[in-house]
Write a protein that binds this DNA or RNA. Structure first.
Length: 481
RNA sequence: GGCCCUGUCGUCUAACGGUUAGGACACCGGUCUUUCAAGCCGGCAGCAGGGGUUCGACUCCCCUCAGGGCCGCCA
């Protein structure tokens, strides 16, 4: 029985990379008549949020990648949310300690920071924990734990030899054990790190194929050692290439739209999105480039995955999406438009803001057009407002860019209250004239100087549209668009 | 810096030792058309470099180079 999983961390907007990995996992499970599981890896208490988790569910559902077991649908291995499984991890950690495969570490954050800094300055070839606490006698260590001394638990890596692990696509990989440090398994807050939780859950949930992104290869030996320490059979590991920006770095939101919400709002069809993602590092045996999810599943094999990191090319996605749109009849197209961009829910949010400002129904289209288009243009009449009185175009660009990255990108609850609080905080911190600054944001986000109230407008436009237009405004100000 | 992964047109890729190195996007031309698209036809463009192995290398091996990832009590 084949069982695969997607294990996203709910720490931000739903990521296109998650959809990519989910697609391949889904396909492999379905191809083999197995199960595809959704597990939420919310062990980072600082960054995880319910809002993010909900967006992940919504995005995967939008794409049509349905899961057989998960936090919302349950299953035989519930719970599927790691924050609800802490006692399981703690028990397993005790087992490792008993076996001598893990040990408590009492080193402070300060000590570790200093150590890292020292290694960095000395350009030490081997970075990482110096195993300071590994030599503490077990009895003493346990006594200190019982006394309540803050600590983490680390994996006791073999101090010599090599770890061999097989990657389905790359063959046998070898890692020098002396170069791998003792990974933290259990944090001082009692939560597991990814490494522990991932291995324990994959085993307990009967995952047969771990299909994940290439960025995990470097921690593969740690995972392999964990399986071996527990005496568990290892799953098949298959590392997918990383999606790339045009400059070939790992795909990032500074250089690409990475939020699935962006694609949905922009009107990319889920089937086109999946089709395109399937083309990233995989091809049909017969060379066909246009195919449905079911056809993909039917033809899918892991061995046709290509290892070079594919550049995520919005142009080709757009072309494919156009092909899909052209296959839809007017009725179906209408249904698609009505489901998001022209939904009653969306229109109902816009109308209260626009009602006071129009006198004839036909005025609606002209007045409210910026609620429906993608990017907006900045004519000579509004451009000075975008620049702001006190700054140069370059400075204005920098300000908007900082606003985006510091205040807006991290904001998941896109409400007018939060927006107002963030924008005001930002303006004050930088001593920007409120009127001037808010007008610049207004223009950036709507292309107009006269609009409904800014925060309400931004709330209705939504994060993706605001983000996208702010980005565009920055590019315009920099003379790059 | 160390370790690891990767390397065919600008981009996505086919090729499983023997091909004029094929297709798709983009771009350029043409065609259709009242316009713009779409469609159709055509064109441009690539095996990172150097050594081997072999009768024969894009394909196998080695070195170099280049790109990427990781080096967190983040995943």
């Amino acid at each position: 029985m084949v069982r695969t999983r997607i294990a996203p961390s709910p720490t931000g907007d739903p990521h296109v990379g998650t959809a990519y990995v989910a697609l391949f996992n889904y396909a492999w499970a379905k191809k083999n008549g197995g199960q595809f599981i959704l597990r939420i890896e919310d062990t980072d208490r600082e960054r995880s949020s319910e809002a993010s988790e909900e967006m992940i569910f919504a995005s995967l559902r939008w794409l049509g990648l349905s899961w057989d077991e998960g936090p919302d649908v349950g299953g035989p291995h519930a719970p599927y949310r790691q924050s609800q499984r802490t006692t399981i991890y703690q028990q397993h950690v005790e087992e490792l300690i008993d076996r001598g495969a893990a040990y408590p570490c009492f080193c402070s954050k300060d000590r570790l920071d200093a150590l890292r800094e020292q290694q960095r300055r000395a350009k030490a070839p081997v970075m990482g924990y110096d195993r300071h606490c590994r030599s503490i006698p077990k009895a003493e260590a346990q006594a200190r734990r019982r006394a309540g001394e803050p600590h983490v638990v680390r994996l006791a890596m073999p101090t010599q030899g090599i770890t061999k692990v097989r990657d389905f696509l790359r063959g046998e990989l070898e890692f020098d054990n002396t170069l791998i440090d003792d990974q933290v398994l259990l944090k001082s807050d009692g939560f597991p790190t990814y490494h522990l939780a991932n291995v324990v859950d994959d085993h307990l949930m009967g995952i047969t194929h771990v299909i994940r992104a290439e960025e995990w290869i470097s921690s593969l030996p740690k995972h392999a050692q964990l399986y071996r320490a527990f005496g568990w059979e290892e799953p098949v590991f298959c590392h997918l290439p990383l999606l790339r920006n045009a400059d070939r770095s790992k795909i990032s939101k500074r250089k690409n739209p990475t939020s699935l919400n962006f694609y949905r709002r922009a009107g990319f069809l889920p089937e086109a999105m999946l089709n395109f993602l399937a083309l990233m590092g995989w091809t049909m045996p017969d060379g066909r480039e246009e195919f449905t999810l079911d056809e993909f599943v039917e033809a899918f094999t892991l061995d046709r995955i290509v290892l070079g990191g594919p550049v995520f090319d919005l142009t080709k996605l757009t072309w494919l999406n156009g092909k899909y749109i052209r296959t839809l009849g007017p009725q179906e197209l209408l249904r698609r438009l009505r489901s998001d961009l022209l939904s009653d829910a969306y229109l109902l949010k816009i109308l209260p803001l626009v009602r006071e400002r129009i006198d004839k129904l036909e005025d609606f289209i002209a007045y409210a057009s910026f609620f429906f288009v993608g990017e907006v243009s900045y004519g000579p009449d509004v451009l000075p407002k975008l620049v702001m009185k006190t700054s140069s175009p370059t400075e204005a660009a920098a300000i908007l860019e900082e606003l985006l990255e510091e205040e807006l990108d991290p904001l998941l609850d896109w409400s007018k209250e939060n927006l107002e609080a963030r924008l005001r905080r930002f303006a004050e911190a930088r001593s920007l004239r409120a009127g001037d600054f808010f007008m610049a944001v207004r223009v950036a986000v709507t292309g107009k100087t006269a609009t409904p109230p800014l925060f309400e407008t931004m709330e209705v436009l939504g994060k993706e549209t605001c983000r996208r237009r702010l980005r565009h405004a920055v590019a315009v100000l920099k003379g790059k668009a």
